[in-house]
Design a protein around this nucleic acid. Structure first.
Lengths: 367, 367
DNA sequence: TTGTACGCGTTATCAT
DNA sequence: ATGATAACGCGTACAA
């Protein structure tokens, strides 16, 4: 804050003299009532006579009056804003969840304050600077962040309802999918096609992004292998960084081997697209030479005819927003704080497109 | 607003008794100074002795004190928030611009309030409900929205600095690319490869999304054709909805014709990917049977080996944020309002990948 | 260097 | 049904 003068002090009592901004006093004067009545009339409270309400409304309209959200917040203690914390805004998953949440929140008159904190390695901004978050919103939505314990503690101290999407924190409401099951389903699909040498490109759990997702999807792969009676150490496991570029680089090395796998499962569609790109560069046909499968059902997956396990993404944002809204409504109705640690898992399903096929072909082609 | 009781009124004077939230009074009492001194000390003003500053700081730390942004805003007239208006959050372009802007703004301690208004057809929320925007932020960033005149007027009345990305409004600072030139470059590239029958899938300017972009890119195509001495009505013009699905549908019909074009230019990479998908479904090889080119350099374009005209997207967000910040700083320094209607065009460049090739092959293949 | 006191623009309480 | 008026929590002239 620079030492500049505050807002117009001791402004002349006329309406909107300087800035074109009028206050509740201007409206009150013009309508010939008190500010209290203006406030009541404008908010639709019922102890206002129709005649005065009409006068107030037209006065407000004439003056382009809108109540200052700042002052309202100070007086009521509510901000009408929901904070959203995510690692990135620009990645498909986050952007889509955010979009779903935003539209649902806005429908309820709530605003969205955005915080993207980035990945830990690359100078991730921690949330520890409490200044940023404190008292700025009434509820918080956290999307697939790997939070440090100190950050979780700080968010707890905020004393507001919190819902997460894609991560699990003790005591916070959560929406997501069963990542273990999703990966299991995907791997099972490939095994069902007869593939026995299946590579898996997962997330590196040493990197603090999507750590839980990386771990869970890996676990699902192992579970499927185990159930099929295959050694769970069998697949070549590659650790990606969840980006298509990283996955392409990894896949290029993998698929160039003489004993290359007959199928590749990627932990995300974006990585799967990187794998497809690598396959094409190496002159491999999909799925004749190699099957490729992803998880997510990315918006662009169909342009690659990518077989995948679909999860509802925007819906997760919407549902999370819905939970927040419910909690907020309940909170304003009484001291009942919130539903604690509720879990909402959404269903996934296989979407079969052209990038996977029976192993027979792949083997025949290789032979 | 429900008729619930306001915030804890007449709270007991003890620090953080109820909610764990302490006020400036609590800090003042604990440090044995006045609230004014606390305010000065915490904001780093220089007329505070070192000893008292130390006492205040430690008192504030002990109490987990953070100044209420709401109260600060009311007192100073500044919110420390920048509004961002975009049609969608979840589409790559918007999400990426937003990401760039957000990171730059946050680096300057500014917050981002998000408004996605959707496309006009599908129940687009107009901005006309002034309640939503009024007095909520100090500056506004508008990303590629087609605004109605009434909306523009309303935004003008906000009386705050506004910068746009990807649209042009009289008197507002603007950052973007030269869309005409970008499309010209793309079409010229294809013509340079010998293509004479080039289809163009553009945006439908009857739909109120990206209308200006649609018009400009179309104009660029015509300019290139004109310069090449070709009839500007030559290319089959298809009107897409900027989505990959829509483009695929259109391209499927187009490429199935016996007299199909030897190349297709799409007004965006996302549409180009739809075209590629259509080509593959029809069994056409790219670029042997048909060349495909896009504009944007989408993050996933490389997975399709898509040749395109790249534009810097995140950078546009960053630059826009930078302009806003400059204006804000200047505004707090004095009454000098803002740079009016400055234009910042960023460069584009052809990124040649594998989806385009000389017409010879296509013609030979067709023959 | 520090303290006092007022104003920022509302909402909510208590009278009337 | 309406009007005064005290909070809400802070910034900041002005006085000391």
């Amino acid at each position: 804050m620079s030492p500049s003068p505050g807002p117009a002090r001791r402004r002349a009592p006329g309406p909107a003299t300087q800035t074109g901004v009028s206050s509740i006093h201007d409206v009150a004067r013009r309508a010939g009532v008190s500010t209290a009545t203006v406030s009541r009339a404008l908010r639709g409270l019922d102890n206002v006579s129709e005649s005065t309400r009409t006068r107030v409304l037209s006065a407000a309209r004439d003056l382009h009056y809108v109540a200052s959200p700042t002052a309202t917040s100070l007086a009521t203690g509510r901000t009408g804003v929901v904070g959203v914390v995510a690692p990135f805004v620009s990645r498909w998953f986050f952007a889509t969840v955010l979009g779903g949440a935003e539209s649902r929140l806005r429908a309820h008159g709530l605003h969205v304050l955005l915080f993207s904190i980035g990945a830990p390695g690359e100078g991730r901004k921690t949330l520890l600077d409490m200044q940023l978050l404190h008292k700025r919103f009434d509820a918080l939505l956290v999307i697939a962040c790997d939070l440090y314990e100190a950050e979780i503690a700080l968010l707890r101290r905020l004393g507001i309802p919190i819902v997460t999407v894609g991560l699990e924190v003790e005591g916070w409401d959560r929406v997501g999918i069963d990542d273990v099951a999703a990966a299991d389903t995907a791997m099972t699909h490939l095994l069902g096609l007869g593939h026995r040498r299946v590579a898996f490109i997962g997330g590196d759990d040493a990197v603090d992004v999507h750590r839980a997702t990386a771990v869970h999807r890996m676990r699902g792969v192992r579970r499927a292998l185990h159930r099929a009676g295959l050694p769970t150490a069998c697949p070549e496991l590659l650790l990606g960084d969840w980006t298509p570029v990283g996955a392409e680089r990894a896949a290029r090395e993998l698929l160039a081997r003489p004993d290359r796998p007959s199928a590749v499962l990627a932990a995300s569609d974006e990585m799967a697209m990187g794998v497809l790109s690598a396959a094409h560069r190496l002159g491999l046909r999909v799925p004749d030479d190699v099957s490729v499968m992803g998880i997510d059902d990315h918006e662009l997956a169909f342009t690659h005819a990518l077989t995948t396990v679909a999860q509802p993404v925007a819906e997760q944002g919407e549902l999370a927003a819905q939970l927040l809204i419910q909690t907020l409504v309940r909170a304003s109705g009484g001291p009942g704080v919130a539903g604690r640690g509720r879990l909402h898992l959404l269903p996934t399903r296989v979407v079969e497109r052209g990038s996977t096929g029976p192993v027979a072909r792949a083997v025949a082609a290789a032979g």
